[in-house]
Lab assay of single mutants.
Amino acid sequence: DLSALRVEEVQNVINAMQKILECPICLELIKEPVSTKCDHIFCKFCMLKLLNQKKGPSQCPLCKNDITKRSLQESTRFSQLVEELLKIICAFQLDTGLEYANSYNFAKKENNSPEHLKDEVSIIQSMGYRNRAKRLLQSEPENPSLQETSLSVQLSNLGTVRTLRTKQRIQPQRTSVYIELGSDSSEDTVNKATYCSVGDQELLQITPQGTRDEISLDSAKKAACEFSETDVTNTEHHQPSNNDLNTTEKRAAERHPEKYQGSSVSNLHVEPCGTNTHASSLQHENSSLLLTKDRMNVEKAEF
């Protein structure tokens, strides 16, 4: 173990290094160091905050020279020094078990990766560091076993998940096959086929009936047209017969005018059967003409 005197000496050296690497504005270890034209180094955030307070150039807090945003430059070497100082402080805390008085939040800088452990060898070769390295080497064999167990647990979990997924996939297939086998029997399929065939026959029977009705309507229309044509021909046949009657009536009127007047009046009210309204109107006109002729003949006879 380190003596108290040596611990104090190391602590004083760390404090001196820390004062050199402090920012003059925030009085902390410089984060993202930036250098000016006057070779003074500050935190990048502190300098941008200072420049944004005034429009135009501002003055350096140490030498009062003008500073602009374009004049600022990043210093990589200074950032490396800060990183190495942080590593020294971490090693000091691990070796002594004491917390550094002016320690900052170094938890963000710590890294437990194997590459980081290899890099620590180049920091300080001390008894405390050696003991700590031995402890780490002793704890390393235990870690692979834990990793193997965790991997086995994960693989077993994956296997159970896969088996569950396969079961879920197989179950719908089985149910679907069961439904297909038990849903419709052979008799049901035959009945469905016969039902479809009967429906098709009914459709075939319905369509000819409609065509037959249309044919019957067409035949009825044709018969009505033929009947009207026969009526017209009958009226045409009746007209010459009426003319013959008129000639006979004229002759009778010349011989017996008194008797014919009474008979002509009675004939006005008689309509021949089986004739249309057109034929009756023609008869009325003929009878009126005959009456006028008879009157003329009677007057001539009187004179």
Score class of each variant (00 low, 15 high):
S35D: 01
K44L: 01
S75G: 15
D294S: 06
T68E: 14
T247F: 11
G274H: 13
V270G: 02
L51N: 01
K221N: 14
A223S: 05
L21K: 00
L27Y: 03
E140P: 08
M17G: 00
L2S: 14
Q73I: 14
T68R: 02
C90N: 15
S126M: 03
Q53G: 07
V270D: 15
Y129S: 09
L21Y: 11
N234S: 06
D213T: 10
E110P: 06
F106E: 01
R295I: 12
D200P: 10
L86K: 11
L27P: 01
E32D: 08
P172L: 04
P272M: 12
S150H: 02
D218F: 07
G159D: 07
I123D: 03
K49M: 07
Q154D: 14
F78T: 15
Q138Y: 05
H40V: 00
L86Y: 10
D95R: 00
K54E: 06
V198C: 05
Y260R: 12
I206R: 11
T248P: 14
A4K: 00
A133I: 09
P272Y: 08
L217C: 07
R165I: 10
E140R: 10
K192L: 01
H238Y: 08
L282F: 15
E249F: 12
E142R: 13
S264F: 06
E74I: 15
Q239F: 06
S264T: 12
L50K: 02
C38F: 00
C90M: 11
S281P: 08
L62P: 00
A4I: 04
I206M: 04
S3V: 13
I41T: 01
I215K: 06
T76L: 10
D218T: 06
S156E: 15
E249R: 09
G56V: 03
S281C: 04
K87R: 10
Y260G: 09
E22Y: 01
S266P: 02
E302D: 14
G97D: 04
P114G: 09
P33E: 02
T76S: 07
H269L: 14
D213E: 15
G159I: 03
I215Y: 15
E140I: 06
K109N: 07
Q168G: 13
L85Y: 14
G274D: 13
E226I: 03
Q53W: 04
K19V: 01
N157Y: 03
A223C: 10
R130F: 04
N157E: 14
C225I: 06
L94D: 11
R251D: 10
E202R: 09
L151Q: 11
F45E: 15
R70I: 13
L137E: 13
I123Q: 09
K222S: 08
L2R: 14
F42T: 01
R162K: 10
H278D: 15
E84I: 04
P257I: 15
L51F: 07
V10T: 05
I67S: 01
L27E: 02
R169A: 10
L155K: 15
G56R: 03
P33T: 08
C38R: 00
F42M: 01
N246I: 08
E226V: 13
S266F: 06
M127C: 04
E142S: 09
S281M: 07
A133P: 12
H284R: 07
A16G: 06
Q80P: 09
N267E: 04
E84T: 04
L5T: 09
Q283A: 01
V121H: 13
P172S: 01
S156C: 06
T248Q: 03
S186C: 15
E148F: 02
A224G: 14
S186N: 15
T166K: 11
N246V: 04
K64R: 15
R70N: 10
L146S: 08
F227C: 09
K293G: 11
K259L: 07
C63S: 00
L50W: 15
N157D: 08
D119G: 08
F227K: 07
I20L: 08
T277S: 05
E229Q: 10
L5G: 09
D231F: 10
H278E: 14
T247A: 07
S216H: 13
K19D: 05
K19I: 01
I89Y: 00
A4Y: 12
Q80V: 13
T277A: 07
L21D: 00
D188L: 02
Q209E: 15
L117P: 01
L5F: 07
S156N: 08
Q138K: 08
K49Q: 11
S71F: 04
L146C: 11
I67W: 01
Q173R: 14
F42Y: 15
I89M: 12
Y260K: 13
T160S: 15
T149V: 08
E74V: 12
E148V: 07
T68Y: 07
K55T: 12
E32M: 05
S145Q: 08
H278N: 11
L27R: 03
F227L: 03
S152N: 12
D188S: 05
E148L: 06
I89R: 02
R165T: 03
D218Y: 05
Y129F: 06
S126F: 09
Q205G: 13
G97C: 01
A220V: 10
E285Y: 12
C26K: 00
E202P: 10
Q11K: 11
V121N: 08
A133G: 08
N157S: 06
S263H: 10
V7D: 01
E271S: 09
K19T: 02
D213R: 05
L268F: 08
N105K: 12
C46S: 00
Q93Y: 03
K49D: 03
T248W: 04
L164Q: 15
F106R: 10
H256P: 12
M127K: 13
V7E: 01
G210F: 03
P33G: 08
T163I: 04
R130E: 10
C26F: 00
T36L: 03
T163R: 10
R130M: 10
S197V: 00
H269Y: 09
P114T: 06
Q261G: 15
I124Y: 14
E83C: 09
L29V: 05
E202Y: 02
N157K: 11
R132H: 06
L62W: 02
F106Q: 12
K19H: 01
Q201F: 07
P33Q: 03
